[in-house]
Design a protein around this nucleic acid. Structure first.
Lengths: 190, 190
DNA sequence: CAACTTACTTCAAATTTTGAAGTAACCTTG
DNA sequence: CAAGGTTACTTCAAAATTTGAAGTAAGTTG
């Protein structure tokens, strides 16, 4: 059954009209049939990848807007994402690499800018002087807090009831699975 | 209830060990509890955004690898994504913009490279000579087919049973919702 | 027909990402 | 303990991607 379904690609409606957010949310809630989704559409590898690309673009531009509003000029959205990835714990560059699947030189570059802007502190580890320990400064924490505040509105719109929460969680877990499958494939060749 | 849950951020385990793909799939299938997911974790805005960013990075590098294997040198993964977005229909640049939420000048640039490489044809529309009609050439379709073939393996790993399919679809729909909410927010300010 | 809009292109600059060296510290093993 | 290897990161230059401002040509409207 899976074999017969899989190769078949179905065109999925992705165009958006100029609908208001509220309208749309009402519609999807009904159309999808939250509790028992109907399997009329098979989502493929590439459709998901394209969706992820689009959503990522959207978020990046949203973050850029938010940061412009906050008057942040010295770092861009990519650096802010790194800042958010660090969170409130002290960690090494290597640990950070794992967190975001970044490339080493890339993170090194971002950390330099974040450090120059005063958003993070770097201290050489006592135990291993090669390892730099990274920590978000007060200024950095403030930026994170501001971004989180701005994000609160989206959380409220996106997670309105238990069904929303469930779907968000399934989406998260599924993306995590994609991450692992794609990541392992890259290293071991599927 | 939602209000009390929302502001609380929970650290989600995202590190991956050197697990084999197959092992991992077994684990998640069991751990997640496919039919009735437990709500111990609340997924926030930023966690999802960071996940999306990571997954996107992974996919891009996978695509790059795949294309290197195929010996494609004249265009990169971003251009390939555009090619896949065009699909097998003839459309205008404007329609393509909507499909991927690209910026005009960006697509124009990619289309130029794709046209130079012989992957697409551009014909001025008869009705409206401003509008360029885009079509994937045979060479372009061949690349798409090769990529789809390579992607087949991932589809088989990712969509193994009805539960997988359901989760992939929920993930897709949820991302679509994110896309709309973030997109509308960008235009109308939430 | 003049002014405006649309559909796209071009170009230059900024941002992001990669890859190939480097450097310094740590860890073996003879 | 010292030569050789590994690890943890940094630096730099080049490439890829993305943006934004300006341009062009074709439609549209008053």
């Amino acid at each position: 059954m899976i074999q017969t379904l899989l190769p078949k690609e179905v065109e999925v409606e992705t165009s958006i009209g100029d609908v208001e957010v509220a309208d749309f949310l009402e519609n999807t809630a009904k159309k999808q049939g939250h509790r028992h989704p109907v399997h009329t559409v098979v989502v493929t590898h590439f459709e998901l990848a394209r969706m992820i690309e689009r959503v990522n673009r959207r978020f990046a531009s949203l973050l850029r807007t938010e940061m412009t509003k906050l008057g942040i000029e010295d770092v861009g959205p990519a650096q802010a994402m790194v800042l958010l990835a660090i969170g409130d714990v002290e960690l090494s560059v290597g640990e950070l690499l794992d967190r975001g699947h970044y490339v080493g030189s890339n993170i090194s570059y971002y950390l330099k800018q974040l450090a120059d802007g005063g958003y993070i502190d770097r201290v050489a580890s006592q135990r291993d002087k090669r390892s730099a320990r990274i920590r978000v400064t007060e200024k950095g924490e403030k930026l994170c807090a501001n971004l989180r505040d701005a994000g609160g509105a989206y959380n409220r719109v996106l997670a309105r009831d238990a069904d929303d929460l469930r779907n968000l969680e399934i989406a998260f877990q599924t993306l995590h699975r994609l991450e692992l499958v794609w990541g392992n494939a890259a290293r071991y060749g599927i």
